[in-house]
Amino acid sequence: MTSTSSAERAEADGYTPVADNLGAVLASGEPPTHPSAWSASVTFAWRAMLKIKHVPEQLFDVTAFPVIMTLMFTYLFGGALAGSPEEYLQYLLPGVLVMSVAMITMYTGVGLNADIQKGVFDRFRTLPIWRPSALVGAVIGDVCRYSLASVVIIVLGLVLGYRPGGGVLGVLVGIGLLLVFSFAFSWIWTLLGLVLRSERSVMGVSAMVLFPLSFLSNVFVDPRTMPEWLQGFVDVNPIAHLVAAVRGALSGQWDGSATLWMFVSAGIILAIFGPLTMRRYNRK
């Protein structure tokens, strides 16, 4: 059968289906037992990695964007807020780390919106697998992108003079907390990605949610300098808890209550937006 097929290939796309070849493939197509929820999710995460391999441009937003953010805010506010950029960087860097990654999470929604319009999702949804695995896998893939962004920012920070008091362990724990939160936070965008019609509207709505959440927080300045009503908002802003937790881990001054609140808000976000996303996904 090798000889027939190589002869066929000699002619440009002169393919003729051969009953014996195709029949043999069909006869040996016993379905295996379907994969576990975890294994299906990991396979979808692998798909996300393959997509990065073929469309590496999508790494631009996890590398260039954090670099610009870090440089911009360090030199823009550094002199005015802390006397010098180096001093301010000690306060700012954990905040900018969180802010950049939080901003990048919105690409999860944008990407999903584009992806899900394509026919391949019809196929995924007819497979006998745990249905959320396509989305869980996509988000796991995105978490890999978030870790890349985190590394970029930390390295840049070190170059600019940032010195984390928590050492290597503190940095790893800080990034870990950030990734856990981002995983949960991404489900807001998966829902938006499924509800909204176009990539552009996903982008618009995401930015509208993200800007107040990240600016009206402790990313740039100590909330004690803010008017009371604003402090009230910062107190319930999950991003603010996350920043406090990450800042604590990086500096070596552990903030237990912020860390707890961060986990609680991540849990609440996941518990609300995970099922809503799945409901939407099942109906699409």
Binding site: P32, R47, L50
Partner: peptide, 29 residues
């Protein structure tokens, strides 16, 4: 059941092999 949709139900960004391996894995291979 299996569905071959009216609009390509295959991932255009991936190669032929990657598409089939991906789906094979999702089926449990």
């Amino acid at each position: 059941v299996s569905l071959t949709g009216q609009y390509a139900s295959i991932d255009e960004d991936l190669t032929g092999t990657e598409n089939l391996v991906l789906l094979g894995r999702l089926l449990g291979h």
